[in-house]
Simulated assay, not measured.
Amino acid sequence: MTSKGDLTKARLAESMLELIQTSGFSGTGLNAVIDHAAAPKGSIYFHFPDGKEGLGIAAIELAAKQFEALIAEAATSAGNAADAARAVIVALSTIVSESDFRLGCPVSVVTLEMGAESERLRQACVTAFESWIAATATFLEASGVDAEEAGSLATVVVSTIEGAVIVSRAMRSVQPLASAADVVAMLIEQRCGAGETR
């Protein structure tokens, strides 16, 4: 059974995650997180003794789990690896467009803002990206791509999606994400086809 304290801690991380997406890490104050989470004052330092940095790490870890779940769902429901990648990008396009282009990837936001300022936050971002690359590589391998090549291709796929999210938000258009979906699907189809002919 989840305790009240655990629920408060989770709510604080969820609020931090959402506020990072809309206001950035630097623009998110602890009072705003408390208000957004409807949490008791003092609860942040009780659950996160290292303050904003620790809360930011928790938010990044939550984002990593959410995107891993999205990848897993797409891998399970799609007919092949290219369709799975396309499904992930379509889901992200929906999130970005329905938020009026206010929501993006919180991990990229923290990387750009804090990567040179906080080694702990930078490392949390690295861990998040690596988890997405690993999950993508595993699915590509299962689809017939050579293990070493799957890692490289997965890195390209994740990097392409991350860049497309940023450009889509800047342009206030999901066209960059749609273009990324086409290119990523084509790359995966080519590599899966190459694996089958070996």
Rank of each mutant, 00 (worst) to 15 (best):
M1E: 11
T2L: 15
K4T: 14
G5S: 04
L7F: 11
A13T: 07
E14I: 10
L17P: 01
E18K: 09
I20K: 02
G24F: 06
G24M: 09
G27Y: 09
T28G: 09
T28A: 09
G29Q: 11
N31A: 12
N31Y: 12
A32W: 07
A32Y: 07
H36S: 15
H36V: 09
P40V: 04
K41A: 06
S43H: 10
I44N: 01
Y45F: 14
F46H: 12
H47Y: 15
P49I: 13
D50F: 13
G54Y: 02
L55Y: 03
L55K: 03
L55T: 03
L55S: 03
G56P: 02
I60M: 03
E61Y: 02
L62Y: 02
K65L: 05
E68Q: 08
E68H: 05
A72K: 03
A74Q: 02
A74M: 04
T76I: 06
N80P: 10
N80S: 10
A81C: 02
D83T: 06
A84T: 08
L92Y: 00
T94F: 04
I95A: 09
V96F: 00
S97M: 13
E98A: 11
S99Y: 02
D100L: 14
D100S: 13
V107A: 03
T111P: 08
M114Y: 12
M114L: 14
G115D: 03
A116S: 10
A116H: 12
E117H: 11
S118I: 14
R120T: 06
L121G: 01
C125V: 07
C125T: 06
C125K: 00
T127M: 02
A128C: 09
E130W: 05
S131C: 01
W132I: 05
A134N: 13
A137M: 10
F139H: 14
L140K: 06
E141D: 11
D146M: 10
D146T: 07
A147S: 14
E149K: 13
G151N: 11
S152G: 13
S152H: 14
V157R: 00
V157F: 02
V157N: 00
I161K: 05
G163V: 02
V165F: 01
I166R: 04
V167P: 03
V167Y: 03
V167Q: 08
V167F: 06
S168Y: 01
V174S: 06
V174I: 15
V174C: 09
Q175K: 13
L177D: 01
A180L: 05
L187W: 09
I188V: 14
I188C: 02
E189Y: 01
R191D: 05
C192M: 12
T197A: 05
